[in-house]
Design a protein around this nucleic acid. Structure first.
Lengths: 212, 212
DNA sequence: TTGTGTGAATCCCTTCACAGCG
DNA sequence: CGCTGTGAAGGGATTCACACAA
């Protein structure tokens, strides 16, 4: 059942969302949950929930629903949250600092083990337990600290170079905040977060809505 | 031809991306582009580019390609960037400040006309030309300054309430950074940016890749 | 000849509907 | 009986392939 099928990006997003909902349900003292309820608190249908989960096994009890606790664990495993991810943050600007302080980060198993920047003013600055290191140390930090993920919070012009250096030094995935499409070798996943693109999607939809 | 068909979200994202590529091409002195080239510099196919554009009209010349300048204008109009969007930022934390300073913002026609926060320490603080106002003034600011869009950079617990107040006061769209699914009336577009979700998508894919 | 615009074919995702298990 | 798990149906979106315009 946990077949090596291709799982779509939207499915993964939904799984991530289910996990969040489960945590809320658990906080409210819920012990079991139906696909119906899970769907209502996401923005999906019950059939979708069941289909999503069915790609990875059958975790529910017919006539009963899912055990909140068990499903939560399963989702954590599926999403790869049952291990620690070691993250390096490249770019100690505002986006970088916003991420660094994001409370859910650590909670989800992401540990920012290093920060680098090119700005001499910033190098040496202390953020919590970390000290900002010069960008030249990128590769050595990745290797020494066994970094898995890199967060690119750098200007568009620097993103490609940093991505290449990081991949060469051994990172396995990239979260890219720079508004460019970066090229990486096959097999290195990249997720892009592009703030302007989100806003543009919004203004497009508003225009549409008002055209009726 | 600019028919009122349903345009998918992914199409809009691609349009937004084409626009960015066109700007780069123009900066390099390019005057015309083919769907082929546009596709290569995005992450799509030529057929996809043509199909996307065909939803809104036929802007190209057969055998020649598209005029960079004209297509850029068309895309700007389609995406609703040919007007000024007035934005209010709710939450003057790090994410808020990152957005506020995002250089592409103003360039794309988004003007952050007001900032509010609940923290007495922050109220009165000056950011560029703006002064942070108390959260109680949300509605009056939206009305007086004719705000179209609200950016929610607040904790999850506050997001729903702020969204409702904003919609009641007249905003037409919401960019939500809080990690919750907010409920809004039909016809008010919401775009969600969820940083943890992006990271989870990444770790999922890395796990998958290594399972091979 | 080149490269667009577009029906047709294909693929993938979502929804339906129900068999089957607790 | 209630709710899951899943084959089948349906619907969208992507890709193909080619007529046609410059």
């Amino acid at each position: 059942m946990p077949l090596s099928r291709r799982i779509s990006d939207s499915t993964v997003r939904r799984l991530s969302h289910y996990l969040r909902v489960l945590e809320l349900i658990q906080a409210d003292g819920g012990v079991t949950v139906s696909s119906e309820e899970l769907a209502k608190r996401g923005h999906t249908t019950a059939a979708q929930v069941r289909k999503d989960l069915s790609h990875f096994g059958s975790f529910g009890k017919r006539g009963l629903g899912y055990s909140v606790d068990e499903l939560k664990d399963r989702l954590r495993t599926i999403l790869g949250l049952d291990r620690l991810w070691r993250v390096i943050l490249v770019g100690a600007g505002r986006i970088g600092s916003a991420l660094f302080d994001y409370p859910d980060f650590k909670k989800r198993g992401y540990d920012c083990v290093a920060i680098v920047d090119t700005d001499p003013e910033k190098i040496g600055e202390r953020w919590g337990e970390r000290v900002i290191r010069p960008a030249e140390e990128l590769e050595s930090l990745i290797r020494e600290l066994n970094v898995n993920l890199v967060i690119l919070a750098v200007p568009a012009s620097a993103a490609q170079v940093v991505a290449e250096r990081s991949v060469n030094a051994g990172v396995k995935g990239i979260l890219n905040f720079a508004p460019v499409q970066i090229q990486v070798p096959e097999g290195i996943p990249v997720e892009n977060v592009n703030l302007v693109m989100e806003l543009e999607a919004l203004s497009f939809q508003i225009n549409r809505a008002s055209e009726t």
